[in-house]
Design a binder for these strands. Structure first.
Length: 769
RNA sequence: GCCCGGGUGGCGAAAUGGGUAUACGUAGUCGACUUAAAAUCGAUGGCCCCCGCUGGGGGGCGUGUGGGUUCGAAUCCCACCCCGGGCACCA
C-alpha cells in the first residue's frame, strides 16, 4: 500500500468547489430544504429551524485572526445544528459604511466604494477558502443602495412614529478638521483620533433616536435572554436605572420651579444648598443682574471648553460660583443658596441637584470648599446617642442607613428607608414632588457629518419645513464627490446638484439633509434582512421573519456588549411596536468569544506579532487553522497563539486522515467517505442524521463479532461528550474526546476497522467541523 | 470606589447537583524506523522522600492564602491576597 499523506490543499478545494457547485449551504424560505432531508423525517414534517449568526465583519483590508475565530466558532455550531437535523440559516454580509474607508479616501482619493469592494472581495475569497458553510445567496453589503434603501425606510418609520427627532445638542467638534466627531472618534485624552487636536464642545442641531423610551423594556427583557451574565450586567449598568423622586425647588425671586431628581428624598431636611450644571439653560438668566454675573459667565465658559477627561475626574477639587439667588426647600421652607458647579451633569436627571453635604461625598466636598453649612439628618442606629449628645461632623459624610434626626416630629426617629417613602408621599400630597425613576441611558445621536454612510432621507422645504422623502423615492443615493475632506459640514453639502431638489409636497425648492447615519444604524437590523435578502418590495416579508427569527445563536466580540447589542434590541422593539415584527428580542442566545493574543499581547502591526489567517491556511490548510483556534482554549476566553499548537493540530488531522485512508483501503467505504470530508466540514448530506444511528445499529452487530466492548463504550462516550460540549461551546474538550478515541483506535487498528467504530469516530469528528 | 470574570504541572488547559486531581494537546525525556535528518510510530510524564535499583514498588505533600462544613472539597461556606475586564462626580 502506497504511503499517502494528508494533503489539505488537495482535499479542501475539492470540497469547496463541490459546495459552491451544489450550493450546499443555501436554505430556502419555503418549507424544508430539499437538500437536508436525505434521511427524511416523517413525511411532511418540517425540520426545526436554527438561525446561527456571527456579527458581520467590517471589511477593511484582509480578515484577521479574530475573524477566523468567530467564524470558526459559528461554523462549528451551524454544522452541529445541521447534524441535529435542523435547517440552518447561516448567512454573511458586510458592515461596509464607515470611517476607515472614508479616511482612506481622504488620504488616497480612492472612492470608498472601490476600496470597500476590494476588501469585500478579499473577505469573500478567504471565507470560501476557510470552507465556512455560508448561504451566499443572502449576501449583501450595507453600503449597497438595495440595502440602505431599507435603512432609510426604517429611519422614516421611526421619524413618523416620533422616535427620530432633531434637537440641538452639545457635540464633539474638532477645530482642525472642522467636523463633528463621534464619541468613538475622540481618544481618552479628548483629542481627535485623526489629527490629535483638542476636541471642543459645540451646540449643534443633530438627529437623535429615542432609545430612552425603551429603557425600561431594554432592562426588563434582559432577564429572559441566554446571554453571558457580564454582558447583561454591562447593559444594566449602561441603562442605569435609579429609583427616587422628583422634588420641586422654587426660586421665588424669579418665580421659576426647578425640579431635581434624587435617590435620597429621605435626606431632604439636610439640603443646605442647590447646584446647577454649567450647561443648564437658565444659569445666565439666574445670575443676570446679580453681583456674580461676570463670575458665572467666566465659569460657564471655562467649564464648557474643558475636556470630559478634566471635568470627569472625581478627584479634582470642587469648583463653582454662586448664582446670587436662592430656592425654597419644599419640606421646610428654608431659603438655600444656588450655585453653578461642573460636578453637576446636565445630561443626568434635570441638570440641577439639591445638595445634602452631610450624606453625599461630592456635596460634602463642595460644602467644605465653600464653607457651606452641613446638617446631619441621618444617624446610624447604634450610634444614635453619641451623635445626639455631641452633634459634631464626625463620620460625615454618612451615606449608610439609619434613623432620621433633626427632622420634624412627624419623621424624626423614623428609619430612613421608611421615611423615604413617607416623605415622597407627603411631597405628592402637597404637589411638591413625586416618585420617579431615572435612567443613565441617553438618546442615540445618529447624525454624522460624514460622506460614507446612508444619507438621512429628509428634505428641508422653504414652505413646508422638514419633509420625509416619500417611500417611492428611496433610496436617497449617495452622490459621487471628489473631495471627502470635512469642512465644518457634511462633505455631501458640496454636491449642489444633489442637495438642491424639489419638495414632494408642494413642488417648491428644497434642500436635502446632508448628514449621514451612524453605521450602527446599518447594523441594527441586518439580521432581519438576511431572512429575506432579495426582497425588492419591502425590507422583509413578515412571513420570512416568522420562519427564521429570532437568531438562535449569536456570536461576536464582547466589545459590542453595549452599543451594537443595545441598538439592535432597541430597533427590534421599536419595529415590533410599529407592527413590522412580532417578537421582542433579536438574539435569544449570545456567545462572546475571547481575543487571540500573541506572546501575551494583542496582535498589532506596530508590535509585529500579527498572525495572518491566510498564511496559516496556506501552510497547513483551513481545517488545521480552524480546529486549532477552537482547541486553543475555551473560545469565550482570551487565548495566546502558539505555532507549536498549530503543528500539533495538523498532526492530529494527519493521523485522523491516515486512519481513514487505511479503513478505506480495507473496504469500509461508507465510513471513509465521511472521514475524508469530515475535516473539511463535509456536507450533512452523507453523514448527518444517519451517522449516529449507524453507530448504534453497528454496535450490536460488532459486539457479536467480539469487538472490544471497552472501545465501543468509549466511542459512544466520545459522541455523547462531543455533542454535550458543543452545546456548551467547549470545543477544546470536544476535540480532546475525539483525539482520545483516535488514540484508542490507533492502538487497536484491527478493531478500529469495524464499521461500528469507524462510524462512531466519523460521527464524533464530523460533529465538530 | 462600585459591578462582573478568573487563579489547577514548563505551557494551553480538563474535571464543579462533592467521590481516583492534572483528561487531551504542547514542550521535554527515552526508544523504534533511518547512513542521517524530517516525517511517522511507541513509551514516559505534578513535587518530595524511601526501598529496589537497566524492568519495578512504597510513603508523604499537592488545585492563590488562611480557616470551616464533610467519611471525603479544585468543587460548598467565611475571610483575605493577586490578576483581567467593565462602569465611574449618575445626585
Amino acid at each position: 500500500m502506497a504511503e499517502r499523506r494528508y494533503d489539505p490543499h488537495e482535499i479542501e478545494p475539492r470540497w469547496q468547489a463541490l459546495w459552491a457547485r451544489e450550493r450546499t449551504w443555501e436554505v430556502s424560505n419555503e418549507g424544508a430544504d430539499p437538500r437536508s432531508d436525505g434521511r427524511g423525517g416523517a413525511a411532511g414534517a418540517r425540520a426545526p429551524k436554527s438561525y446561527v449568526l456571527e456579527m458581520l465583519p467590517y471589511p477593511s483590508g484582509e480578515p484577521h485572526i479574530g475573524h477566523l475565530k468567530v467564524y470558526s466558532v459559528g461554523d462549528a455550531i451551524a454544522h452541529f445544528h445541521r447534524r441535529l437535523g435542523a435547517r440552518v440559516l447561516h448567512p454573511m454580509g458586510y458592515d461596509a459604511f464607515g470611517l476607515p474607508a472614508e479616511n482612506h479616501a481622504i488620504k488616497t482619493g480612492v472612492h470608498p466604494r472601490d476600496s470597500t469592494a476590494e476588501s469585500i472581495a478579499s473577505f469573500q475569497r478567504q471565507f470560501r477558502s476557510w470552507g465556512i458553510s455560508i448561504d451566499w445567496s443572502r449576501e449583501f453589503a450595507t453600503c449597497e443602495p438595495s440595502y440602505y434603501r431599507w435603512t432609510q425606510w426604517i429611519f422614516l418609520e421611526l421619524f413618523r412614529a416620533g422616535l427620530a427627532y432633531r434637537k440641538e445638542a452639545a457635540v464633539k467638534w474638532c477645530p482642525k478638521d472642522q467636523t463633528v466627531l463621534a464619541n468613538e472618534q475622540v481618544d481618552a485624552e479628548g483629542r481627535c483620533e485623526r489629527c490629535g487636536a483638542l476636541v471642543e464642545v459645540k451646540q449643534l442641531e443633530q438627529w437623535f433616536l429615542r432609545i430612552t423610551d425603551y429603557a425600561e423594556r431594554l432592562l426588563g427583557d434582559l432577564d429572559a435572554l441566554e446571554w453571558p451574565e457580564h454582558v447583561k450586567t454591562m447593559q444594566r449598568n449602561w441603562i442605569g436605572r435609579s429609583e427616587g423622586a422628583e422634588v420641586i425647588f422654587r426660586c421665588e425671586e424669579l418665580g421659576i420651579d426647578y425640579p431635581v431628581f434624587t435617590t435620597r428624598p429621605d435626606t431632604l431636611f439636610g439640603a443646605t444648598f442647590f447646584v446647577m450644571a454649567p450647561e443648564h439653560p437658565d444659569v445666565m438668566r439666574l445670575a443676570h443682574a446679580t453681583p456674580y454675573e461676570h463670575a458665572v459667565h467666566d465659569y460657564v465658559n471655562h467649564a464648557l471648553t474643558e475636556t470630559n477627561e478634566e471635568r470627569g475626574n472625581a478627584e479634582k477639587p470642587k469648583t463653582g460660583v454662586p448664582l446670587g439667588r436662592t430656592v425654597t426647600n419644599p419640606v421646610n421652607g428654608e431659603q438655600i443658596p444656588m450655585y453653578v458647579a461642573d460636578y453637576v451633569l446636565m445630561e443626568y436627571g434635570t441638570g440641577a441637584i439639591m445638595a445634602v453635604p452631610a450624606h453625599d461625598e461630592r456635596d460634602y466636598a463642595f460644602a467644605r470648599a465653600f464653607d457651606l453649612p452641613v446638617r446631619r439628618v441621618i444617624a446610624p442606629r447604634d450610634a444614635l446617642d453619641t451623635v445626639e449628645a455631641a452633634p459634631g461632623e464626625d463620620g460625615l459624610p454618612f451615606v449608610g442607613d439609619g434613623v432620621l434626626i433633626n427632622a420634624p416630629d412627624e419623621f424624626d426617629g423614623m428609619d430612613n428607608r421608611e421615611a423615604l417613602g413617607a416623605i415622597v408621599a407627603w411631597l405628592d400630597r402637597e404637589g411638591k414632588g413625586h416618585a420617579s425613576v431615572n435612567y443613565r441611558l441617553r438618546d442615540w445621536l445618529v447624525s454624522r457629518q460624514r460622506y460614507w454612510g446612508a444619507p438621512i432621507p429628509i428634505l428641508y422645504c422653504e414652505s413646508c419645513g422638514m419633509v420625509p422623502v416619500p417611500d417611492d423615492q428611496l433610496p436617497v443615493e449617495l452622490p459621487d464627490i471628489e473631495d471627502y475632506t470635512p469642512k465644518g459640514r457634511s462633505p455631501l453639502a458640496a454636491a449642489e446638484d444633489w442637495v438642491n431638489t424639489t419638495c414632494p409636497k408642494c413642488g417648491g425648492s428644497a434642500r436635502r439633509e446632508t448628514d449621514t447615519m451612524d453605521t450602527f444604524v446599518d447594523s441594527s437590523w441586518y439580521f432581519l434582512r438576511y431572512c429575506d435578502a432579495r426582497n425588492e418590495h419591502a425590507a422583509w416579508d413578515p412571513a420570512a421573519l416568522r420562519e427564521w427569527m429570532p437568531v438562535d445563536q449569536y456570536i461576536g466580540g464582547v466589545e459590542h456588549a453595549i452599543l451594537h447589542l443595545m441598538y439592535a434590541r432597541f430597533f427590534t422593539k421599536a419595529l415590533a411596536d410599529l407592527g413590522h415584527l412580532d417578537f421582542q428580542e433579536p438574539f435569544q442566545a449570545l456567545f462572546t468569544q475571547g481575543m487571540v493574543t500573541k506572546d501575551g499581547a494583542k496582535m498589532s502591526k506596530s508590535r509585529g506579532n500579527v498572525v495572518s489567517p491566510a498564511s496559516i491556511v496556506e501552510r497547513y490548510g483551513a481545517d488545521t487553522a480552524r480546529c486549532y483556534i477552537l482547541f486553543i482554549a475555551p473560545p469565550d476566553q482570551d487565548a495566546d497563539w502558539s505555532d507549536d499548537g498549530v503543528e500539533g493540530m495538523h498532526r492530529f488531522l494527519s493521523r485522523l486522515w491516515r486512519l481513514s485512508a487505511v479503513l478505506a483501503e480495507r473496504g469500509d467505504g461508507g465510513a471513509a467517505d465521511g472521514w475524508s470530508g469530515a475535516g473539511s466540514g463535509e456536507a450533512g448530506t452523507r453523514v448527518a442524521g444517519g451517522a449516529g444511528e449507524g453507530a448504534h445499529a453497528g454496535a450490536g452487530e460488532t459486539a457479536r463479532e467480539g469487538v472490544d466492548l471497552e472501545l465501543l463504550r468509549k466511542a459512544h462516550w466520545a459522541i455523547d461528550k462531543v455533542s454535550t460540549d458543543l452545546r456548551r461551546f467547549a470545543f477544546n474538550t470536544a476535540i480532546a474526546a475525539v483525539m482520545e478515541l483516535l488514540n484508542e483506535c490507533s492502538r487497536l487498528r484491527e478493531q478500529a476497522s469495524t464499521p461500528a467504530l469507524s462510524f462512531a469516530l466519523c460521527t464524533a469528528a464530523s460533529l465538530l467541523f
